[in-house]
Structures are given as structure tokens and as C-alpha cells.
Design a protein around this nucleic acid. Structure first.
Length: 509
RNA sequence: GUUCCCGUAGACGAAUUGGUUAAGUCGUUGCUCUUUCACAGCAAAGGUUGCGGGUUCGAUCCCCGUCGGGAAUACCA
């Protein structure tokens, strides 16, 4: 492969960018970077009725958050612009006309209403209407109406579309990198609309014209495009152009396994489906993003890379550079990949574990600030190191360690009832004194003194440590008690211990 | 309905000119370490490669059929 490969990611700005779109972008990006090629962002906004303000900015912000910054695009520059299809409107018609002239396309005058009525009627009889060789001579188009008539309609300014005229009976062969050879019979395919009544091209026309004009060499897109690829290949032939290499990606499936992951599944299964949060017009149309939910974009990318591809080695953790190095378009999987939240959680955890402390501090800080606390970096660094290895997501730092900032809200009453012995109260008062006299208040010294206390009083670790832990944090889970006590500080520890004893007594009474 | 795609343990998936007892990871269970949770380490369970034929000395791999899942079937992308 030479170094002039050019790939594009071509989303339509109809709302937030779905996670599947990010994967498509990722694979395009990886292949482009691997061979020193170009990664282009093209906005496919040919459907003016579906345009959503802000979607374009969302797409770019999402790509950048994921580290998939395009090399060409509306705000990235490039010699092949404009990169927004609405701004290229004037380019498309000539190619549709060219295909009309060569007899591979035709004018169609049927209105949308007429067509949907026919469809509805046939559907009632359990049949499907296909605009193709079998039906087009019964429709109103330039193949059934006389030339004069056609000209008259055209001159009158009446709305019309241009449709692709599919060959009657021919095999269209697609050599797809992922699927291998796929054959479609033109007989089964419909005469797709190329140019809409509003003068805009459909996806089918716009995508092949732009891919050609932008010198795209590889088209990596979702599997849902496979059926229409036959139309695209035919158009390249009719226009006398070379078709790009195709690779159709497997679908990303719902966690439940059936059906492709949809934007509604996030709410349904309780996890984000979008990279960034999106505020739509309605609650129903608003979604939380991976970024806001505390996911590491690097972990997300690593996870996504493995959804439909694998390097064939045993390495699982990949940086972007390593992905670029290892990526091989020939190793993309054919079968749909299920979106496995556990796996994503594992990746996120791995990334959190390997994040340097200073970096972690910067990430945890905003979470605490939002809760109204702004501890100094030295404290935060200790705090982070305590929780780093028992946390899967960023917000866990707060949910697991909130008691370093606020009073304990939930006590593990069940364990208290089991462990707290009323008759031991005096011994624990002694413990309070012991703790009070620890100077300096360090984990090491605390451990030494508390261990001595346990020995002196002939108690066991199991009888003492859980009590301390619960009094101070409400739970038996968490980091080493002594480290915890040190970071909490003498004042808080003493206060919580003595208050804890009273609470425990009450619980047992 | 039609066309196309897919089908290896609960999940992701390796085995790429068909070649020994079908990798590895996640998850599950157990053990070690720990006051606890987690991390880490070790170990185990889990599969007639959807099913049935065929080709072959030999099929996860090739062919046919069948079942299951999915996608497409718009003047949406």
C-alpha cells in the first residue's frame, strides 16, 4: 500500500454521534495513520429536514476527545473542500445528468405521496413495491413519457427526481475486504433516487461523487451499507471511475445480543451509548456521554478497537500509537460484536490503574470541587493512591471515599451488631486514648500502637479493626485501616470513634 | 415476503493456502496474600466449532441443505 491512502468518516449531523460511529471513525483513522495517509471528516447533510444545530460541533468535539482528530475537514482545512455536502450541492447534478445522458439514469415524476400510496396498497396484500425494471414502465418517468412530454414537464419547473436505472439482469460483484466476494443480482435491486426533488443528492449519489472527487481510496463503513454497495459500484462504472476498496464493519450488538445497539439502549441497560453528553430538545432525546460518566477516552478507544478486530496476539492494552502500529484491516471480524459492559469496565479499570498519580489528581479534583471540596494536592495524591486500585471509574473515588470529606452517612449495621460487644466498651475507651496519644499520627506508628493495644487487651484483629473501620468510614470495605486513619487525621478519627461507640451501643440496645 | 450478512464455552474471540489433546482475555468458582474490599498471583469449571449431509486420508475452515440471529428493502443517512 502506498502512502497516499485517503479515508473519510462521513457522519450526518442529525444529533449526537453514536458509539458505533466512533468505532467506524477509529478504524478509518487507524488505517489512515498506519500508512501515513489522510483522515477526512465529511459532513453528510444532504437531508435538510434532519439537520440538527450543534450536531456538527458535537461530532468534532467527540472525535477530538477520542483522539481521532481529522486531518481534513470543515475546520481542519484541506485541498478537497468544501467538506460539507450542502455546500457542494452544485457539484452533484451534473453527474446525475451524465448518467441520464448515457442511459443509466432517468427522470421520475412520481410524487412521494403517490409512491407511498402504492407501497401501502401492496403492503396490505403482503407484497413489497420495488421501483425497478419490473415496475418502472408503469410509473411516470422519462422512460414511459414521450420525449416532448418530458421536456415540457422539465421546462414547467415541476419537481422531479433522477433515478438510477438498474440493469435488468446482471450480477454485481463486490470484493469486500471483510466479507470477501459478495454478489448481488440487479434484478433484486431497486432504482435508487439519486437526485431528490429539492435538488439535493441522496446519500448514494453524494457519497460516490465526493469519494471520487476527494480521492478516497478506502471506504470503511458499517455493515448496514452492504446492500446498497451494489448501487454504488454500478455508479462508479457508469461514470467511468474506479471504485474505492470497501470494508464493511460488523454491527455492534446490544448487550442482550439481539439487534444492533441503538441510542435508546443506553437508558435501557444503564450505560452511555454516546461519547459526550447530548442535550436534545426533549428529555427523551438527551443522553449521558462516556466522558461525563467518568470513562477514560483511551480505555474507550481500546475497547472499541477490539469490537470487531483483534491483533491476533495476546496483548490487550493498546495505546493509540500501538493500535496504529498493530491495526490490520484484514483482521477485522465478520460477525457482530456484542457491546460488553463488563469488558469496558475492565479496560477502564486497567487505564485507571496505570494512570500516573499526578494525572489522577487532576482528574479527581473536578469531581470533588463539584461536591464543594477543594483539598490540596498533597492530600489528594495520598487519597488517590489509597483508592487507585479499588476503583473502576472516576466517580468511584467519591462514592467510595466520600467520608474523607463529609460525615459518614451509611453504617454497616449488620456487621456492627455482630462485632460490637457492649462489655468491651471500656477497652475501646482505652483504644481511644491510645489513638489520641499517637504522635506523629502516622500509619506506621498507628499500626504499632494499635497492635500493641490488641495484644495487651487480649483482643483479636477481627474484633477491633472492623469496629475502627466502621466507626470511621461506615463500611468494612476500603483501603488499609492505618493508611486511612493517617489520612483522615487525628481529630476526625478521635471524634468518629467516640461517636461511633455511642451509636454502636444504641444499635445493640 | 425478498436480497444480503453472520453463527467457535456466559461474553469477546485465536486457530489466514483444510493437519495432532480447539489459544488467550473478560466473567464465574476456588486457593494464596489481606482486619475487610480491591489489586496481584495461582488453579479449576465451562465446547459433540448451530444442526444434517457431502468432498477429503483428514474439516472450525471447502460445497449443499436446514435452523437461528441480524441488516437492508425511503425523494434518511
Amino acid at each position: 500500500m502506498d502512502n497516499t491512502i485517503r479515508l473519510r468518516f462521513a457522519p450526518s449531523p442529525t444529533g449526537a454521534l453514536h458509539i458505533g460511529g466512533i468505532r467506524t471513525a477509529l478504524y478509518n483513522y487507524l488505517l489512515a495513520k498506519k500508512y501515513g495517509g489522510t483522515f477526512i471528516l465529511r459532513i453528510e447533510d444532504t437531508d435538510q429536514t434532519r439537520y440538527v444545530p450543534g450536531a456538527e460541533e458535537y461530532i468534532m468535539e467527540a472525535l477530538e476527545w477520542c483522539g481521532l482528530t481529522p486531518t481534513e475537514g470543515t475546520k481542519y482545512g484541506g485541498e478537497h473542500g468544501p467538506y460539507r455536502q450542502s455546500e457542494r450541492k452544485h457539484l452533484y447534478k451534473q453527474y446525475a445528468d451524465q448518467m441520464v445522458a448515457s442511459g443509466n439514469a432517468y427522470y421520475a415524476f412520481d410524487t412521494q405521496e403517490e409512491l407511498s400510496e402504492i407501497r401501502k396498497a401492496l403492503e396490505a396484500q403482503k407484497e413489497t413495491f420495488i421501483y425497478n425494471a419490473q415496475t418502472r414502465d408503469q410509473m411516470r418517468n422519462s422512460l414511459t413519457v414521450s420525449e416532448d412530454e418530458v421536456q415540457k414537464i422539465l421546462d414547467s419547473g415541476a419537481a422531479y427526481t433522477i433515478r438510477l436505472k438498474m440493469p435488468d439482469d446482471e450480477d454485481v460483484i463486490i470484493d469486500d475486504i471483510v466479507r470477501g466476494r459478495v454478489v448481488f443480482k440487479t434484478k433484486e435491486l431497486d432504482d435508487k433516487v439519486l437526485l431528490k426533488a429539492d435538488g439535493m443528492p441522496t446519500y448514494h449519489l453524494a457519497n460516490i461523487v465526493d469519494d471520487h472527487l476527494m480521492e478516497i481510496t478506502h471506504v470503511i463503513r458499517g455493515e448496514e451499507w452492504l446492500p446498497s454497495t451494489a448501487h454504488h459500484v454500478l455508479m462508479y462504472r457508469f461514470l467511468g471511475w474506479d471504485a474505492p476498496t470497501y470494508a464493511h464493519l460488523p454491527l455492534i450488538l446490544k448487550p442482550s445480543g439481539n439487534g444492533k445497539l441503538s441510542k435508546r439502549d443506553g437508558r435501557k441497560f444503564g450505560f452511555p451509548v454516546f461519547p459526550l453528553s447530548w442535550k436534545g430538545a426533549t428529555e427523551e432525546d438527551s443522553f449521558e456521554g462516556f466522558r461525563e460518566a467518568g470513562y477514560d477516552s483511551k480505555a474507550l478507544i481500546n475497547f472499541l478497537a477490539f469490537l470487531g478486530w483483534n491483533p491476533g496476539t495476546e496483548q490487550e492494552i493498546f495505546s493509540m500509537d500501538e493500535l496504529i502500529e498493530a491495526f490490520d484491516i484484514n483482521r477485522i471480524t465478520k460477525s457482530g460484536a456484542r457491546f460488553d459492559l463488563d469488558k469496558l469496565k475492565w479496560f477502564n479499570q486497567q487505564y485507571l490503574h496505570q494512570t500516573p498519580l499526578e494525572e489522577l489528581v487532576e482528574k479527581v479534583k473536578p469531581i470533588l470541587v463539584e461536591k464543594g471540596y477543594s483539598p490540596n494536592d498533597a492530600f489528594l495524591e495520598k487519597f488517590c493512591s489509597l483508592y487507585k486500585e479499588r476503583v473502576s471509574f472516576l466517580p468511584d473515588f467519591w462514592t467510595q471515599g466520600y467520608y474523607f470529606f463529609e460525615e459518614v452517612t451509611v453504617f454497616d449495621e449488620k456487621t456492627i451488631r455482630k462485632k460490637w460487644k457492649l462489655e468491651n466498651r471500656t477497652k475501646f475507651e482505652t483504644l481511644l486514648e491510645v489513638v489520641q496519644n499517637v504522635v506523629p499520627f502516622s500509619a506506621a506508628l498507628l499500626e504499632e500502637k494499635i497492635k500493641a493495644f490488641i495484644a495487651d487487651e487480649e483482643l483479636s484483629f477481627g474484633a477491633v479493626l472492623p469496629i475502627i473501620r466502621i466507626a470511621v468510614s461506615g463500611t468494612t470495605k476500603g483501603p488499609s485501616v492505618f493508611d486511612m486513619l493517617e489520612l483522615l487525621g487525628k481529630e476526625k478519627v478521635v471524634e468518629r470513634l467516640s461517636r461511633g461507640y455511642d451509636l454502636f451501643d444504641q444499635l445493640k440496645a
